Simulated assay, not measured.
Amino acid sequence: MAELTEIKSLLSQINLPEKEQEDLLSISKIKQLKKNEFFISEGQVPKKFGIVIDGLFRYYYVNNKGDEFTKGLILTGNVLTAYSAMLHQQKSLFYIQALEDAVILEINYNLWLELKKQNPFWDKFLILLLQKGYCVKEKRERELLLLDAETRYKIFQEEFPTLEKRIKLQIIASYLGIKPESLSRIRKKTTS
């Protein structure tokens, strides 16, 4: 289990002042998830969000044929949330799955809303998180719409240099928007 000092260190790295760290910890719980366990499932109305203390997660959709489409990869120090579903208290349209054993700081959304009412810091913090998420989303959309698969793979390797050793190639292919066979061809071409 993650030590409190480790959690506080991580919260400092994401620019949470000491008082806000204490406030957040007072409404949170440390939760361990096993590899392949879901933090949020499609169809669930989310009432929580989390901060990844240790581990790796993915956001993904499943179509009516059972094909998976990885929308994002979430590393240590980042927030886990199906934000629009949580905000509107609607069912999540995607899954949030641990890709390895993980530890998160799980935050109850309703308690966080109460905290937010008491301290304007949380509005500013939320805006920063939303800006970061929007920039990631905009970059990802551009890459998927305008760049070829080989270029997307090179960008993936630059952004996530250790992930190929940590996750299945089919998840990487899903993230890149290609079939696993295409990824195998690209990998063969780039390593030869």
Rank of each mutant, 00 (worst) to 15 (best):
A173S: 11
F125P: 00
K179Q: 09
L24A: 01
L113Y: 14
L87V: 13
D101H: 15
F57D: 02
A102Q: 02
R152Q: 10
Y175N: 03
F49K: 01
L25M: 07
Y109N: 07
I96N: 00
K47S: 13
I167N: 05
Y60A: 05
L73I: 13
E42W: 10
N119S: 04
F49R: 00
E158L: 15
T81P: 02
T81H: 03
I51N: 00
R142A: 10
E68V: 06
K34R: 10
L10G: 00
L128Y: 11
E141M: 12
N108H: 14
E3Q: 12
S26P: 05
K8G: 07
L128I: 11
R152A: 08
Q97E: 11
L25R: 01
K8D: 08
R166N: 05
A85C: 08
N15E: 15
K48I: 02
E37A: 09
T151A: 13
R185A: 09
L169V: 09
W122C: 06
L115W: 08
A102L: 05
E100K: 07
K31V: 10
A82F: 03
S41K: 12
K35G: 08
T76F: 06
G66K: 13
D23G: 05
L24C: 02
F38V: 12
D67G: 08
V52L: 08
E6Y: 04
I30C: 01
F38W: 12
N110K: 14
G77M: 02
K154F: 08
